[in-house]
Nucleic acid binder design. Structure first.
Lengths: 339, 339
DNA sequence: AATCTTATTGACAACGTTGTCACAAAGGTA
DNA sequence: TACCTTTGTGACAACGTTGTCAATAAGATT
């Protein structure tokens, strides 16, 4: 490994001068700089992170702690967004996956500490409140896609209420009145928020919200639920007074509704309009007709979380803003206007 | 930050003794160990990675360089698999995403070097040959889901030929004879290999392979292809002598074939059997009927890649094995036996 | 009793970098 | 000429850890 000392010797200057050049310190004569830079390139010198870290007491890594986010198709974009933002100032992402194991989580907090991470993003798979233990970590922590029960931590979350509103509003504007809803688990905060948004849309359109048209499409424990949207859709669609549109808690549920419609010989969107959530490309862009859905802005959430980690260092103790990222409606082909 | 020195002072021993205890060195009296361990726990001491790295010249991080793998639903399991194996000896994963940009890739190689990564896994989104530049990195490099054009690097790849064989063999065993095929881009190595496997299966069953039943289902550049499986499926299924089964290059294509079948009023698997590839859960487990498919063992590929990184350090220069990971058939409900 | 092992511990240097301080040379001002 | 400022450079220490080697104490062997 080439060191400052070796470059310095070769260039005939002191290591401090080389250090200055590497770090873009202005106080170096131009010709010295150029000469040394040549040697640096030629010898392929790369500054040793370990030594830098040790000397400066800080690193250029940001940690990403997740229950499963980095490992599930739903929200990998958080990672992409975080990286995009990190890249801008040459920082690095270390990722840790707890699979929900608290012991593992504790170990990873120590790991982040050992690596002198400048901050940690704590991302959850579902938008929900998250009570973090005692993270044994004294730098910036920003929650992504979740928020602390105690409200004492900065967090970046999707605007689920707005998303729910957008879903219902769009269908209502298209003229639908009998709108069925197949929700995610009620244990997820998002479910409550979106319901609130939908009801607001119904109210604004002067349409009565019918509670018996609302079903839960995913049952069981959070991480390993069973998707029952197919059965729910079947039962709703076989009634004589069936809904003309179905709002789904995510695109996976929507896919099952497509299957149910196909099974019953209903064509989409002619006989039934279907609205998803998430904009999970492999489903939303692939289905025919392509799925109209509301995008979960994971990329932006990840990006924003990193931005907040950077910000956090300048802030004082109690800093705990809750940033809402909008969920835009993505109109494709699965919803039609009623005449 | 608590240091060895502080613990040593508090415990009334030398820093070296504490160091020994932290590292599980046997040569410490039991009672000393216990006493010091108490202090360590109480003071919440965590060894400084930077200092360790600097002293030992090696870190405990493994790099993961990808074009897009960590960011696409298809293959995030590589990350999970890698982490699972890494966790066993408390190693850490640093991930780098190049989005296919060579300049960025060069920068990340330097970054890995700066972090003294013990090895790097170079993962590609599609199983294909990959000509790596001059990676400016002198430790273990293992390719995952791709292999070097020059054949000079260790790699872990899925057994696509076996997978193709499994797809065809299963349908042939079920009695299908007119089997349509909708492939991925011919630019992907996997496409060639699977085709070979399928033809072997046809041969073994004494069935003639009909080339006009094979269509390409994804066209355009590798990273941003257009999925046209829907149209391909429609055209194949509208012919009078339509195939009784369709083999797809992946589950996304299969999803479009489901849509095409629904559009034509064909029921699956009654009128048409559909076989996928990848076992992308959001599709394969969600569809009704659930998709029979061949699993792409990404988790195992990631895990194995890490194992090979560890192995690599013991090996000599030219070490470049090509490890094949089997692709198991996952039987669900989308294929039926012909009477 | 003298010597040799073995077990346990500590002093010290070194890893590669950067912050602090100092010094020399050059230029400007009185 | 004497003094001050600015510019460019280098010597040295320190960050926290571990490897090397030495020192001590305790026990075993002759």
């Amino acid at each position: 490994m080439v060191t400052l000392r070796e470059v310095a010797e070769r260039a005939g200057v002191s290591i401090k001068t080389v250090s200055r050049i590497v770090n873009g310190d202005a106080a170096v004569k131009a010709e010295t700089r150029d000469a040394v830079l040549l040697h640096i390139k030629e010898m392929n010198y790369v500054p040793d992170q370990a030594a830098r870290m040790m000397r400066s007491g800080t690193s250029n890594v940001v940690g990403l702690m997740t229950d499963a986010v980095a490992t599930t198709p739903y929200s990998v974009d958080i990672v992409r967004g975080a990286q995009a933002e990190l890249k801008r100032d040459h920082k690095t992402l270390i990722i840790a996956n707890t699979d929900g194991d608290p012991a593992l989580e504790a170990e990873y907090w120590r790991m982040f500490r050992a690596h002198k991470a400048v901050g940690v993003i704590y991302a959850a798979m579902f938008h929900r409140s998250q009570s973090m233990g005692h993270p044994d970590f004294n730098k910036a922590v920003v929650l992504a896609n979740c928020f602390s029960k105690e409200g004492d931590r900065a967090s970046v979350i999707p605007d689920d209420e707005g998303g729910g509103y957008a879903q219902a509003d769009y269908l209502l504007k298209l003229g639908h009145r009998r709108i069925g809803i197949i929700t995610l688990s009620p244990m997820i905060e998002a479910t409550t928020l979106r319901g609130r948004g939908m009801r607001r849309a119904f109210r604004e359109h002067g349409v009565t919200f019918e509670y018996d048209l609302e079903k839960v499409g995913a049952v069981g424990p959070l991480m390993g639920e069973t998707v029952v949207a197919y059965d729910m859709a079947l039962s709703m669609l076989m009634k004589k007074n069936r809904p003309t549109a179905l709002i789904c808690g995510n695109d996976v549920l929507a896919l099952q509704v497509f299957s149910a419609a196909a099974h019953l010989g209903l064509s989409v969107p002619q006989d039934l309009s279907i609205m998803g959530f998430d904009d999970l490309k492999v489903i939303s862009e692939t289905l025919r007709p392509a799925l109209t859905t509301v995008a979960l802005p994971y990329f932006e959430i990840g990006r924003m979380a990193v931005e907040m980690v950077k910000l956090a260092s300048d802030e004082k103790e109690g800093w705990a803003p809750k940033v809402l990222v909008p969920c835009p409606l993505v109109i494709r082909e699965s919803c039609r206007a009623l005449v």
